[in-house]
Design a protein around this nucleic acid. Structure first.
Length: 495
RNA sequence: GGGGCGUUAACUCAGUCGGUAGAGUAUCUGCCUUUUAAGCAGAGAGUCGCGCGUUCGAGUCGCGCACGCCCCA
């Protein structure tokens, strides 16, 4: 189907047809197991200009034709594979009339195989002089312009395959993303964490406060929810006796899109029995800083022009300390329930009629502190009322043993010592459901099975969630979450 | 949900006061066996996002819609 019939597409089809008429296979599969360009490039690099590799030295590579400069009886083109690029020199007198004739109908974008001998041009460019050319896949659409490339962001996201072909820095970002995830797995595995898989389809959406996607199971005739968090299942595994578990997988939240939100996003959650949130802070510092060192070669990076230092130790502040030290509020006011309520009203913090001083502090924190936390900072002492799954602090039961990690003003991680008292847990669920009961989109429901699991006994433990997309944004200096998700969500394309 | 900006050839972009739609790259033809944003000569290529309106006349002005980006909630 030609969906956008224009001259260029017609010309490419005609060229392809004429090659086919000559007996050339346009979509062959017999050029197998080529070498990688990065591996053979040194053979050409070591040569002196205008010399060839010794007789008998040859190589066999495959990739996409990127830039094609044709002369009458010779041509140069760039061949790009996953590892690198190299210049190919094709000559009529080497290839013969038939092969060279076919080659004349090649285009930028074609996927081809090349056999040839390494050499270096007089200008010193490492090259391969082709002795045999092989069509692997004829491309029927022109590539974007060679100089400016593809910059239209909508096309880049909708046709990521084109973006990946022509923008090497995009390939490098995604390679880095996969490397970061690999290093996280290695880091946790080395420390005895077991990677597990828990359900993506939940009968009760739990573990976070977010609007879920709803789906329907036909055979069971029941509503199911795409998970908003894996937390309650991972804790069931602690009950079951696994002491260190982690999961890296997608969560789904039926909410707005922005530079920091995609409806499906990747979350790391890990849980460690017989540990506290303080152990998690140590672990997080070590994990993120060491991964940054491995991926970027340094713990000092810049994010969108702002220098960030990820070298441990990282600053640790309670929420009230942050309000006075970072936001510059009077510590006496922050510490006084009535005064802090008054202050929150002055700053127009959105408070419900029944909101208490801890909601006021949280509101002021979000308004005045978060965006100022540029270098990594752990914020601790979150109020119990906004932390329904966290263990209460022993000295002050109104707060929890919890932290959030902020870098570049953004929440990167959330962690706490886990609440394992089933009676307290049930009460907090009830309270949470009372609060959210009027919000039909959130579908609050008591997870009786989770409470039952806690009643069997869950060891003391700490757990943490890290937003992988945001971490990758930080470590790859990407301004938008869409730059670190291969196929970000967009509205349907208009025909 | 609100505001701002954008949408013109395959790609990157111009388009003045409302008066025949432009450039570079890419493509095609010819010449060209060391180019590398190859070169020279010539040619073709457009639903100006979509719709309605104003006007003798709309890429340009107005309204609405779609999609995208940014900011705010």
């Amino acid at each position: 189907m030609i969906d956008n019939q224009n001259q260029l597409l017609i010309q490419r089809r005609e060229k392809a047809q004429s090659l086919a008429d000559d007996g050339v296979k346009l979509f062959s599969n017999d050029f197998k197991h080529p070498q990688h360009i990065a591996d053979i490039l040194p053979q050409a690099e070591v040569l002196e200009p205008e010399t060839h590799a010794p007789e008998g030295v040859s190589c066999r590579i495959a990739g996409r034709v990127m830039v094609l400069r044709k002369f009458g009886k010779a041509a140069f083109f760039q061949l790009q594979d996953e590892t690198s690029r190299i210049q190919i020199y094709a000559r009529l007198d080497v290839l013969g009339e038939e092969q060279f004739g076919h080659f004349k109908k090649w285009d930028a974008g074609d996927i081809v195989g090349v056999e040839g001998r390494p050499f270096k041009t007089k200008t010193g460019e490492p090259s391969i002089e082709a002795t045999r050319l092989h069509m692997i896949c004829k491309s029927l659409r022109p590539l974007p312009e060679k100089f400016h490339g593809l910059t239209d962001v909508e096309t880049r996201y909708r046709q990521r395959y084109v973006d990946l072909i022509v923008n090497p820095e995009v390939r490098s970002t995604f390679r880095k993303r996969m490397e970061i995830i690999r290093l996280i797995r290695a880091f946790l595995s080395q420390r005895g964490f077991l990677e597990v898989e828990t359900p993506m389809l939940h009968p009760i959406p739990g573990g976070a406060a977010a609007k879920p996607f709803i789906t329907h199971h036909n055979a069971l005739d029941m509503e199911l929810y795409l998970r908003i968090a894996p937390e309650l299942y991972l804790k069931r595994l602690l009950v079951g006796g696994f002491e260190r578990v982690f999961e890296i997988n997608r969560n789904f939240r039926n909410e707005g899109l922005s530079t920091r939100h995609n409806p499906e996003f990747t979350m790391l959650e890990f849980y460690q029995a017989y540990a506290t949130y303080e152990d998690m802070m140590d672990c997080t510092e070590e994990m993120i800083s060491s991964i940054c060192q491995q991926v970027n070669g340094s713990m000092q990076i810049t994010y969108q022009g702002t220098p960030i230092n990820l070298a441990p130790p990282w600053r640790r502040l309670s929420m009230t300390e942050a309000l006075s030290e970072v936001a510059g509020l009077d510590a006496a006011v922050v510490g006084d329930d009535a005064a802090v309520m008054e202050l929150a009203k002055r700053y127009k913090v959105d408070l419900q009629p029944d909101s208490g001083p801890s909601k006021a502090r949280t509101g002021l924190f979000e308004l005045l502190v978060e965006e100022k936390l540029i270098n990594p900072t752990f914020i601790t002492s979150y109020p119990a009322e906004i932390s329904p799954l966290a263990r209460r602090n022993e000295a002050d039961p109104s707060i929890t043993d919890r932290f959030e990690l902020f870098i570049t003003g953004r929440e990167i991680a959330n962690s706490f010592s886990e609440l394992n008292d089933p009676i307290d847990q049930r009460e907090r669920f009830v309270k949470q459901i009372e609060e959210r009961g009027n919000d039909e989109e959130i579908h609050p429901e008591m997870d009786e099975d989770f409470v039952r699991a806690l009643e069997y006994g869950m060891p003391s433990a700490a757990g943490e969630g890290i937003g992988i997309d945001r971490l990758v944004m930080l470590l790859t200096d990407s301004p938008s979450i869409r730059d670190v998700i291969l196929f970000p969500h967009l509205k349907a394309e208009v025909k």
